[in-house]
Lab assay of single mutants.
Amino acid sequence: QGDIVVALYPYDGIHPDDLSFKKGEKMKVLEEHGEWWKAKSLLTKKEGFIPSNYVAKLN
């Protein structure tokens, strides 16, 4: 089961498979690959890669 993270900063995706998000948006982490994680937005239901240093895990 994936962790839920919250965006600390907004992110505008650079690549087509990036997931753009707004500050405060919550996402479910699907896979962790070093600095880039695959996640699904709980708001938009879209999936893509996010920079892990832009988010914090919720406990």
Rank of each mutant, 00 (worst) to 15 (best):
E31W: 10
L30W: 05
K46E: 09
M27H: 01
A39P: 00
E35L: 14
Y11L: 03
M27Y: 01
H33V: 10
K40Y: 12
G48K: 01
L8Y: 04
L30I: 10
A7D: 00
P10K: 12
K57A: 09
W36I: 10
V6I: 14
V55E: 02
M27W: 01
K26E: 08
E32D: 15
W37T: 08
V6Y: 11
S52H: 09
S52R: 13
V55C: 08
W36A: 05
G13K: 08
E47S: 11
I4V: 09
D3K: 14
F21M: 04
P10H: 13
G24E: 05
K57G: 07
V6R: 06
K28M: 15
E25D: 07
L43Q: 09
K57R: 14
E31G: 08
N59I: 13
K57T: 09
L30P: 00
G34T: 05
G2C: 15
W37S: 07
K23F: 07
T44D: 04
I4T: 07
N53Y: 09
N59R: 10
K40A: 09
H33S: 10
W36M: 10
D18R: 09
L43F: 09
I4R: 03
P51I: 03
K28T: 10
V55G: 02
I14W: 08
W36G: 03
E31R: 07
G2I: 09
E32V: 15
G24A: 04
D3N: 13
K46V: 07
K26R: 14
V6T: 06
L42M: 09
P51K: 05
P51S: 04
E35T: 11
A39E: 01
L58N: 05
Q1Y: 14
E47H: 06
N53S: 15
H15E: 07
H33D: 09
E32A: 14
K22F: 07
E25K: 00
P51E: 04
G24C: 12
A56W: 08
K40H: 09
D18T: 13
E25I: 01
P51G: 02
S41V: 04
D18S: 12
E32Y: 14
K45S: 12
I50H: 00
K40G: 04
V55T: 05
E32R: 14
K38F: 15
W37Y: 15
P10L: 06
I50C: 03
E32W: 11
V29K: 04
L30F: 06
G2K: 09
S20W: 04
V29P: 01
N59M: 11
G34L: 05
Y54E: 03
I4P: 02
V5P: 00
T44R: 03
E25G: 01
Q1A: 13
K22D: 08
V55I: 06
L42Y: 06
S52Q: 11
S20G: 06
H33A: 09
Q1P: 13
W37M: 15
G24H: 06
K23S: 07
K28H: 10
K22S: 10
S41C: 04
T44N: 06
D3S: 14
G48P: 00
M27K: 00
M27I: 05
K26I: 15
A39H: 01
L19I: 05
G2W: 13
Y11P: 01
Y9P: 00
E25C: 03
K45T: 10
E31K: 08
P10T: 13
Q1S: 12
F49R: 13
V6H: 05
D12C: 14
D18E: 15
A7F: 01
L30R: 03
L58G: 06
H33E: 08
Y11N: 03
L19N: 01
W37G: 03
F21A: 01
V5T: 02
K57W: 13
N59C: 15
A39W: 01
V55F: 14
M27C: 02
L19A: 02
A39M: 04
K23M: 09
W36R: 15
Y54N: 05
E32Q: 14
G13S: 11
H33N: 12
I4S: 03
A7T: 03
V5N: 00
D3V: 15
W36Y: 12
D18V: 08
D17K: 11
E25Q: 04
T44I: 02
F21Q: 02
D17I: 06
D17M: 10
K45A: 13
F49Y: 12
E25M: 02
V29S: 01
E47C: 12
V29Q: 02
H15L: 09
K57L: 12
K46A: 10
V6W: 06
G13Q: 06
I14M: 11
L30Y: 07
F49L: 10
M27R: 00
K45I: 06
M27Q: 00
L42N: 03
I4W: 08
K22R: 12
S52L: 06
H33I: 10
S52V: 10
I14Y: 09
L30H: 03
L30S: 05
V5E: 01
A39T: 04
Y11R: 06
G13R: 06
K46M: 12
V55P: 02
K26G: 04
K28G: 04
G48D: 00
L42V: 06
K23W: 06
P51H: 06
